[in-house]
Amino acid sequence: MEHALNFAHNSLGTDLTDLVACPVCDTLHRFSTIPQGGRGRCKRCHHVLATPRPNAMTRIVMLAITATILMMAAISFPFLTIETHGLRQQASVIDTILAYSDGLMVPLSLAMAALIVVLPLTRLTAILYTVAPMALGHHPVRGATRAFRLAEYLKPWAMAEVFIVGVAVALVKVGGLATLTIGPAFWAFAALVLITILQDNFMSSLIIWKTLETRGTT
């Protein structure tokens, strides 16, 4: 342990700001060795540490705004219409959330609303709140740190893109029994998935954290 400590002081220096530990395997890396536009992977476990991109902040803001607008469209329009024997039924996200609204299953209805609509929108808002002021060249606003921590925490629980795959599965399941028409919300959701993938590609949380710190918060 003492040897390791000496090693740390001799070869790594006492300046900790350039060092970054892999969150998966704890191996130390120098942040400055990650090339701009490249993908900094952990040399031991190959976990992606950071992906510095030029103009990343501006792009994140654009993508987050696009995603929010698409989200609004995806919620309000029907995503599937079923037709059989002269009967017709449309389903929107709101209808889907209300599917579990009778009796014992009300909590599931609330959970669905959270997973498909509330949490993804909260996450987008938190990202915008953190990144937008910095993208415009200003200092981060009050509470930006907390907002970004919330965004990070919500990441696995925002399931809008899981929902769209569910729609595709339902389409296959019912497709043989009745005529199905894809509504505008389906395409809004499909675009949302693409935007989310692009955004995750541009958004390197490690870099946002570093920027938040260097630009200073109150």
Binding site: L80, Q89, A91, I97, A99, Y100, M159, G166, K173
Partner: peptide
């Protein structure tokens, strides 16, 4: 999600 979609649709 699929169960909810089917319920809303059918």
């Amino acid at each position: 999600f699929v169960v909810a979609i089917l319920t809303a649709l059918v």
